[in-house]
């Protein structure tokens, strides 16, 4: 038995069923990301003045990732248009670029994450706070780690500015890597130590929630596109119109994922 309305349009919706389905799904996705964006805005406007971190993200890297996703959206549409013109070879070429873009995005994002996991903030017992790197670049250290390792001091490479100081946002991010001369901090003087992980602050909790959820969507979308590029493409031989519709559906999802990033980039990196 054939599944109805995979190609033929329904009289009531004037669409094929998969398109109705994907838009219902994307509607639920809008609610999910909408709730998280609203949370971000409420947390940010509710934060005491001068406490919300700024300039901790690398704007050039974020901008480059934005370009990568815009290019991938263009190639998704080109691959769909190639199928409309009956050219499977060009479809495969353009979708290969899309997959490459997805892989690039995730790789760059993982480097950004790694940078955060080795970047620390120290709250000293005298009230002073500083950000920087612990000698040796360890991952995920916390106050508990210092106790577990029974350390009596750490060697710290502080950043030139703390994020609560009024400096230009991305100048602060660039300056992070310049660092100052190493200092030795006795563990007895450390009230709290945290890497830039979700437990560090509300800011990083919402940052990692939003970007990791988006990253998972990129990964999921790439899996679907990869399947349709490889084994799923055999449908082209038996039912080309249905296959073209599948590509349109995957393209709609991909565009949604990219559109989310178009909003995420300015909200997280620039504002």
């Amino acid at each position: 038995m054939d599944i109805p309305f995979t190609v033929k349009l329904r009289d009531d919706t004037t669409l094929y069923n998969a398109k109705v389905g994907i838009w219902l799904f994307l509607g639920s996705e809008v609610m999910l990301f909408g709730a998280l964006f609203s949370s971000y805005i409420l947390l940010r406007v509710g934060a005491p003045p001068g406490t919300w971190p700024r300039g901790l993200l690398n704007v050039p890297i974020g901008a480059f990732n934005t370009i990568v996703l815009i290019v991938s959206s263009v190639t998704v549409v080109m691959s769909w248009a190639s199928l409309k013109l009956g050219n499977l070879g060009k479809f495969r070429f353009y979708q290969a670029i899309t997959l490459l873009c997805a892989l690039s995005f995730l790789t760059i994002k993982s480097f950004e994450y790694r940078d955060k996991f080795t970047h620390y903030e120290v709250w000293k017992t005298d009230g002073a706070r500083m950000t920087g790197h612990v000698e040796g670049g360890p991952y995920f250290w916390s106050t508990q780690t210092l106790k577990d390792k029974k350390l009596d001091h750490i060697v710290f490479h502080p950043d030139p500015h703390h994020y609560t100081e009024p400096v230009k946002p991305h100048a602060g991010a660039a300056a992070e890597h310049e660092g100052h001369a190493a200092i030795t901090i006795p563990v007895a003087e450390i009230a709290r130590l945290s890497a830039f992980v979700p437990a560090h602050s509300t800011y990083f909790a919402i940052y990692f929630t939003l970007t990791a959820l988006h990253g998972l969507h990129v990964f999921g979308g790439a899996l679907v596109i990869g399947y349709l590029w490889g084994p799923g493409a055999k449908l082209w031989k038996t039912d080309p119109e249905r296959f073209t519709n599948r590509i349109e559906i995957s393209g709609l999802f991909w565009h949604f994922v990219d559109l989310v990033w178009i909003f995420l980039f300015p909200v997280l990196y620039l504002l």
């Binding site: 934005t66 815009i70 998704v76 549409v77 709609l252 565009h255 178009i262 300015p266």
Partner: peptide, 17 residues
């Protein structure tokens, strides 16, 4: 909304960005 329409929306958002 087809992929064409969504792509146009996306490109407009990208231009504004």
């Amino acid at each position: 909304m087809s992929l064409k329409a969504f792509h146009i929306v996306f490109v407009i958002a990208s231009i504004l960005l």
